[in-house]
Design a protein around this nucleic acid. Structure first.
Length: 492
RNA sequence: GAGUGCGUAGCUCAGCCGGUAGAGCACCUGACUUUUAAUCAGGUGGCCGAGGGUUCGAAUCCCUCCGCGCUCACCA
């Protein structure tokens, strides 16, 4: 990479010269293996009562990245995955050959140190070096030690630097990993099967969103990167799996901001003989699991506001919330015309051909979402915007669908899944007509999916959870770019 | 997509009513077996994001482009 060779070429040259000096001594600066016997944290724990200015006879070896060098190498701060341990090099104890290696150590190098455990006069637990092993000579300098790396561009493009110098970055990504693992385990404990379904799809479906399109050469066929796995997971239900879930990447060709990344991690769950109320309980369990593993409590603070993820959450019909926050009872509005007039009166813009349900949803988004700080299941969505959901058993204008909101963000989306093949075919046909008329986001007709339903799908509850959003909330309202290791960036 | 701010040394940042480039850290040399953002003295290092324009003279003013941030729009 020509570019990296130009970065700090002077400091790089100094380090290259040191690398050559190591090689001249017969030292491999990139050895195959090193096996430390201790970590910073294990030493801190084991020797927490060791008095100042005391050296033990315990010989250990530690390994990590050099982050600071003081007093011409007498004190070196070594960081491993567990924290910091100081390396103390007293000339009277360090063999001359080891001192030569020490002189060739720079900040940023990865080294292994063997020696006796000691606490210095000033109280810093240290390893009194007897042998110093270069494990990886760094050729490029690290960002500044005190201010770290603040340039967001560099932080995202060179995330490894962000992780090395900014102390919050790695723990956040580690918590992401633990949250996903814990949620996965919880679902496995529920008896669900984790499955994988196609990311390359010939027909896009399961959501309304603009897709990425790619091309398969051998088949000479365009394929969509999935916007959702829904229609394939339901095929597995038809095939007889009683409960499935998938955690994986979805791709949507839409805007990028602090809450949206073109590729994001979605979790979808389907369980037979469940309806949407069962999914509400399941969502609460997922959120609690995530919060507990990350923070040890279900309470989180976002912008100074305490939010408790402990269930059960209130269940509020969309129309009730609209009535509360906008003062209009849409359930009492009978016609599309009257609904549009009501929306207009509230200053909510709707299309000229907007139906009753479109108006209700538009008013909800404009007037209600911003108030939904504490967890709430918004239930009973209008039918027209939910082509994969069963009609509400008590009101045919609605469907049995809910979205869970936390911190005003939509966190999850769940249905009593539509299983009637004739109804499904008609609703997808309406979507497909919109798609053919130019609505890139509308669903397409998936004949095979409908055929699957024609073979019979048991009553099923389904739940989708935006894993990134969940992590953003659990970790205190972070940007999606802080919880995705490598967010999508423009080509530089 | 719109508005707005930013882009100067490896990193963090000054300089911006035009006059030829600065600091701290890092790096190099030296001092100090002392430290913990070690300290002290000296030094190296810049196509001032790219291109064009105005001007005797541009990091600074103007235009275009590139990249990033924020707000809004879009977005289940």
């Amino acid at each position: 990479m020509a570019e990296s060779q130009n970065i700090g070429h002077e400091q790089r040259q100094v380090r290259l010269d040191k690398l050559k000096a190591l090689e001249a001594k017969g030292i491999n600066a990139y050895p195959h293996i090193y096996r430390p016997t201790a970590t910073a944290a294990s030493l801190a724990e084991k020797y927490k009562d060791l008095p100042n200015d005391t050296q033990t006879a315990d010989i250990v070896s530690v390994a990590g990245r050099v982050r600071a060098v003081r007093n011409s190498g007498m004190f070196v701060d070594l960081y491993d995955a567990t924290g910091k341990v100081q390396i103390y090099s007293a000339l009277e104890h360090l063999p001359p050959a080891e001192k030569d290696v020490l002189d060739l150590v720079d900040i940023g190098d990865i080294v292994g140190v063997e020696g006796a455990v000691r606490r210095t006069k000033r109280g810093e637990l240290s390893v009194a070096a007897q042998k110093i092993t270069m494990l990886a000579k760094a050729l490029l300098p690290l960002p500044e030690k005190f201010h770290g790396l603040t340039d967001t561009d560099t932080r995202y493009r060179q995330r490894y630097l962000d992780m090395i110098v900014n102390p919050d970055t790695l723990p956040i990504l580690a918590k992401r990993s633990r949250i996903i693992t814990a949620v996965r385990q919880m679902l496995l404990d529920e008896g669900l099967l984790e499955v994988e379904t196609p990311i390359l799809q010939a027909v896009k479906g399961g959501a309304t969103a603009k897709p990425f399109i790619t091309h398969h050469n051998a088949l000479d066929m365009d394929l969509f990167l999935r916007i959702a796995p829904e229609l394939y997971l339901k095929r597995l239900i038809v095939g007889g799996m009683p409960g499935v879930f998938e955690i994986g990447r979805n791709f949507r060709n839409e805007g990028i901001d602090t809450r949206h990344n073109p590729e994001f991690t979605m979790m979808e769950i389907y369980r037979v003989y469940n309806d949407y109320t069962d999914m509400m309980t399941l969502f609460e369990k997922i959120a609690e699991t995530a919060a507990l593993v990350a923070n040890g409590t279900t309470k989180i603070a976002i912008d100074g506001v305490e939010i408790d993820l402990k269930g059960p959450y209130p269940r509020r019909p969309m129309a009730d919330l609209v009535k509360e926050h906008a003062g209009v009872d849409f359930m009492a509005i009978a016609s599309d015309d009257a609904a549009r007039a009501a929306a207009d009166k509230l200053g909510v813009h709707v299309e000229k051909d907007a139906a009753w349900g479109d108006c209700l949803a538009a008013v909800f988004e404009d007037k209600c979402e911003k108030h939904l700080i504490q967890p709430v299941h918004v239930i009973d969505y209008p039918k027209c915007m939910s082509p994969l959901t069963k009609s509400h058993r008590a009101d045919d204008r609605l469907v049995e669908r809910f979205e869970t909101f936390i911190n005003t963000w939509e966190m999850g989306n769940a249905y009593t899944e539509l299983t009637n093949p004739l109804d499904q075919h008609q609703r997808l046909a309406e979507q497909a007509a919109a798609h053919d008329a130019g609505d890139e986001e509308a669903d397409m007709m998936d004949e095979d999916f409908v055929a699957a339903l024609e073979h019979g799908m048991p009553p099923t509850g389904g739940l989708g959870v935006g894993i990134d959003r969940l992590i953003m909330v659990v970790l205190g309202g972070l940007s999606i770019r802080d919880i995705i290791a490598f967010p999508t960036m423009r080509k530089k």
